[in-house]
């Protein structure tokens, strides 16, 4: 028996919008810790890891660990039928091949049930080691989104370099080149508008902009984004989900031939 009641149902809607174009099918894992997902894109270039902690739900009942295989496009279709202010409850029964999404309007005058078929998915759970990163950049998520979008009109890849000068995003394409440098800026009205650069050592890595642009679909989930870079690891692009957890995207770098 599984029953998860999420008062801020829009969070789940936003999570699906952020993941459905990257991953087709995925197992949602439910345990005492929370509601989580780990999945790679079909080419194994990117990985998404989601955690919505149990404490963030108004009601969280999960009698035993359960894994539910879902087609994210179909799940998104169903969640789009929920209002932005609706409370969403996810319900499942042991051994059932369906999951139910219940939507309640804020004043309880409309209650909807959507039952979705589950699917068997061979999950490949990966161990993600705790790591020291060479540099961690925290910046407004809208700014990161703007940079990725702007650069993708010029080139296909971006070089992200962190030095003591700041973080530089560079691209080149048939029409020319572009460089955007963001310096640390803590003198802002609100903490989420700050750009904070922690650098242990300079780092420079190349990534496919197509994937970074896909990650920025998570922008509505958080005012700020954290980009963690190490020359030995995939970049981590993390959006914190207020009071609940996070969505993290990992992207393997381009490697010099």
């Amino acid at each position: 028996m599984l029953e998860l009641r999420l008062v801020q149902g829009s969070l789940l809607k936003k999570v699906l919008e952020a993941t459905k174009d990257l991953v087709t099918d995925a197992n949602f894992d439910c345990s005492a810790t929370g509601f989580s997902l780990q999945a790679m894109d079909s080419s194994h270039v990117a990985l998404v890891a989601l955690l919505l902690r149990s404490e963030g739900f108004e009601h969280y009942r999960c009698d035993r660990n359960i894994s539910m295989g879902m087609n994210l496009n179909n799940m998104s279709k169903m969640l789009k039928c929920a209002g932005n202010d609706d409370i969403i409850t996810i319900k499942g029964d042991d051994g059932s091949d369906t999951v139910t999404f219940m939507f309640e309007s804020p004043n309880q005058d409309k209650i909807s049930d959507f039952e979705m078929k589950l699917m068997d998915i061979d999950s490949e759970h990966l161990g993600i080691p705790e790591a020291e990163y060479h540099a961690i950049v925290k910046m407004p998520s809208s700014e990161f989104q703007r940079i990725c979008k702007d650069l993708s009109s010029i080139g296909d890849t971006v070089v992200i370099s962190v030095t003591k000068e700041g973080v530089k995003f560079s691209t080149r394409g048939d029409i020319g080149t572009a460089n955007i440098v963001c310096r640390q800026n803590k003198t802002v009205d609100k903490p989420e508008e700050a750009t904070i650069i922690e650098m242990n050592e300079p780092v420079s890595l190349t990534f496919a902009l197509r994937y970074l642009n896909s990650f920025t679909k998570a922008t509505p989930l958080s005012e700020s984004v954290t980009v963690s870079l190490s020359s030995e690891l995939p970049v981590v692009v993390e959006y914190k989900i207020a009071d609940m957890g996070y969505i993290r995207f990992y992207l393997a770098p381009k490697i010099e031939d």
Partner: peptide
């Protein structure tokens, strides 16, 4: 020239 790296070369299946 560069080639695209793969997540599975960084993270191992468990």
């Amino acid at each position: 020239d560069s080639k695209q790296g793969n997540i599975l070369s960084f993270f191992k299946k468990i």
